[in-house]
Amino acid sequence: MKLFYHLKLDAILLPVIAILICIGGWALVAGHSKITKSVDDFGDTVTKTERFGLSKNLPSPAETWIASQPYIVEPFAKRGELDQGILRFAWLSLKLVAQGYAIALLFGTPIGFFLGLSKNFTRAFDPIIQILRPVSPLAWLPLGMVLFSGLKVMDAAGRTTFGTSDAAALFTIAICAMWPTVLNTAVGVRAVPQDYLNVAKVLKLSKAKTLFKILIPSALPYMFTGFRLSLGIAWLVIVAVEMLIGKPGVGGFLWQQYNANSYAHIILSILTIGIIGYILDRFMSLIEGRFRSA
């Protein structure tokens, strides 16, 4: 037992046990196929596949693994627009998220600063923010489509490189992901200790110098908390957006495979989304921790 803890086996073993239990539960609930072969009246062999189980259409873990293999073994393959390796899909989704997220930070951070610095600005805009904040991405997307209807950027060959649905997607990601950045930045700016502001006052630092030497460094840990939460939301929104506009990506793939009755790929997509979301969060936490300790 001592050795067990000494090697930190519990940190590996316990999650593994939990994962196994979940897979076991999944296997219990999932259906399984039964293939019956019979000879019909004309003498031909007929194979009939029937599914049984608690939830008979839910693929079992083994079925999921077999169906997902081509997507996992060749993660960057491109067999068609909506038939690509899972990491290639993930990469497409991440690219879109990165763009939308960048827009969210670009707008969210200054808005947060204004909220943190001015009581009147807060009084004026807080109700609007509180009303817009809980609106679902599913509601924003149609508005984005209307807002950017008719937008078309074409390349030399006449293909649309950036159209209404792309703009609407970015709009939706940005507006949904912005709020944690806005609110946390505002909190961070309000939490700048009066002592630091006194230093600025005594030294008669200019507005710009106060911003860059005092306000931003002091609010940075809070801002990064906001950035991390915003990234989480951006990743959450991307799936919904891709499902609605049918863009190739993890979310688009998921919806298309549902429509194609390949249910195993839904589970593959969900796991991919979860794992990438987790990696993104860990990555942002690392950066956040670095700023917190500095």
Binding site: Y196, N198, V199, P217, S218, A294
Partner: peptide
């Protein structure tokens, strides 16, 4: 000179 030195920690 303040009671707490008010140094900027960054």
């Amino acid at each position: 000179v303040f009671q707490s030195p008010c140094l900027l920690p960054w």
